[in-house]
């Protein structure tokens, strides 16, 4: 599995994401600076990290989504490439139009930074296929704007197309239907607010996050 991590000014956990991808696949992830206009050849997965790209100016993820590299990421996704966006990366994917809905200020108005329990809402995706529906994972959240909103039609569409990847067991931010992560129509783009790359080593208190990366490797092996 060949992967790349996009790096914006203000990204964080980009290195952790690269470690997560490398541990699962055995192949180091390539770091790609946001000013590049194209992605390296032959990639299977592009990962957009968390953080505070461009200082969260204007709207979280808004400026990053308009950087040259994002057009290449959109093209990659439209050709069927796998893309994962974590936290600010989820915000960037929404701002770039790859995922629907919006992420607003947390309902409690506070920055929430803690481990949360996630419930796997579908095993039918390249990011969750080694999990079972209903299976619980402990993964940290750290965000101020993770309150996912969708209008009635969109929510119905996400539910009926089985595109909710993860739900919170205890909703930390007011997200509609406890949504923590959603999939694109072709199921190959995942955006999630929790950080799987941050709980990916027993020395750090757990490795539930590794399941997302292992699922990706598994799904690409089966496909490839």
């Amino acid at each position: 599995m060949k992967s790349a991590v996009i790096v914006f000014p203000g990204s964080n956990c980009d290195r952790d994401l690269a470690v997560g991808l490398e541990r699962a696949s055995g192949i180091p992830a390539q770091m790609v600076w946001h000013k590049e206009a194209s992605l390296p050849e032959g990639l299977d997965v592009v990962a957009i990290p968390g953080g505070f790209s461009f200082g969260d100016y204007l709207r979280c993820g808004a400026i990053a989504a308009r950087m040259p590299i994002m057009q290449a990421v959109v093209d990659f996704a439209n050709k069927g490439g796998h893309v994962i966006g974590v936290c600010n990366g989820f915000q960037v994917l929404i701002e770039s139009g790859l995922l629907p809905g919006a992420l607003m200020r947390n309902a409690g108005l506070k920055f929430v930074c803690k481990d949360v329990e996630l419930v796997t809402a579908t095993a039918n995706s390249p990011f969750t296929n080694t999990l079972e529906k209903g299976q619980r994972l402990t993964v940290p959240v750290a965000h101020h704007d993770g309150n996912y909103i969708a209008d009635g039609d969109l929510l119905f569409k996400l539910q009926s197309e089985d595109r909710i990847a993860f739900r919170y067991a205890g909703n930390p931010n007011g997200s509609i239907d406890d949504i923590a992560g959603i999939l694109s129509e072709n199921r190959r783009v995942l955006g999630m607010m929790p950080h799987p790359e941050r709980l990916n080593d027993p020395a750090l208190g757990g490795n539930d996050g590794s399941r997302v990366f292992e699922s990706l490797v598994h799904s690409l092996m089966v496909a490839g």
Partner: peptide, 9 residues
């Protein structure tokens, strides 16, 4: 339309 507003919300 392209940047200043997120017309979804």
């Amino acid at each position: 339309e392209k940047l200043l507003a997120n017309t979804v919300i």
